[in-house]
Design a protein around this nucleic acid. Structure first.
Lengths: 189, 189
DNA sequence: GTGATTTCTTAACAAAAGATAATTTGCTAT
DNA sequence: ATAGCAAATTATCTTTTGTTAAGAAATCAC
């Protein structure tokens, strides 16, 4: 599970082994809530196997805004810099194998890493990656119709369409499940 | 103009003065193009006075996706990490006073700054800031109607509504100018 | 396997948005 | 001041989405 990252910085092996020892492996069924909207989460998660969604309540309806898959990390405050307490809920979509770590252990490790310049560069890369991701996502909303957006998703992230229930995809695209069903029907012929 | 940033890092004054000396001040009328979609821009810009928009061509119609005001910086590749060559055009909306710098000079300065840890932290902060900004913007598309989005803009960024022509605001909100006019009409009574 | 629950589809209607064009308003330059 | 141009509004029509509800299909629990 953690080998990917270890391979990236082989000379930091000791620090890394230390890091890994803080993690706990768990297997959970589908629809398990990892942390709830409104609560300040004490854990951060890594996904070994399975798939999650982040969603929030918008006037009584739940709106999914992000999906997570294997080898991705999830924490309550989307970026560890900006400490916005969780305005969203994260739960499993499929039965999953996860690794969690106490927030305070992670914080300690993070401040250690802050001393390592190459780690900082790595964090910068991740930050820019996310910025780019959100920007592209937002651009698709101002330039494409919902139908185009669905076609783009099919093309660029087919695993989402394959593994995620339609109702979650619908709100992710900014439309209702009924409307997504109609779009699919329209496209089918 | 540059004092804000100088105040932030007083002990880097020399480096900063050096930095500033590379800049050139210009006054330009409204609708001046700073760099064009498709071209690789050789300049980066700082705004002393005025207001700009970034837009791209989407099937023959121009779509505005970002506004810039006093004390903000603009370059062809939205993030200096990810070197995506300009897929967009930047032009002035109002007559403006700008400061530009050659890309290669900026690159040199940037790699110098890369050595200074606190500058790196500053860049991390900016990156997270932008990530957060784009995320919030994208969230407003999946949770709000165009009308709500316009009301939010009025409330949270009234300066945009005050200084920017309506047609640009419309595409920024993901709707047509005609539709925005109708929304305003609807809200007026 | 079978019943129960959830998810997806379809239908009918209302509300909103896109497209196009005509009209009005506002701004700029001379 | 006024002619000319660009921006905003209004009107008409078409298309799409939202909403609600009902029915079909798929999934889950036992």
């Amino acid at each position: 599970m953690f080998d990917l990252i270890k391979d990236k910085f082989p000379h930091l092996k000791d620090k890394w082994d230390d890091f890994v020892s803080y993690y706990h492996r768990v297997e959970v069924p589908a629809k398990t809530v990892l942390f709830k909207e409104g609560e300040i989460s004490q854990k951060a998660w890594l996904i070994e196997k399975g798939c999650l969604r982040a969603w929030f309540n918008n006037n009584g309806k739940d709106v999914t805004f992000q999906f997570f898959f294997e080898n991705e990390a999830v924490s309550g405050a989307e970026s560890f810099r900006k400490k916005i307490p969780g305005f969203f809920t994260v739960e499993t979509i499929e039965p999953s194998i996860l690794h969690w770590i106490h927030k305070k252990d992670l914080d300690k490790i993070m401040s250690d890493m802050d001393q390592i310049p190459e780690m900082k560069n790595n964090m910068l890369d991740i930050a820019f990656e996310r910025q780019y991701h959100y920007m592209k996502h937002f651009l698709s909303f101002i330039k494409d119709t919902p139908e185009q957006r669905y076609l783009n998703l099919l093309k660029e992230k087919p695993h989402i369409v394959q593994r995620v229930p339609q109702q979650y995809i619908a709100t992710y695209l900014g439309i209702t499940p009924v409307s997504l069903s109609r779009i699919r029907n329209r496209l089918a012929r």
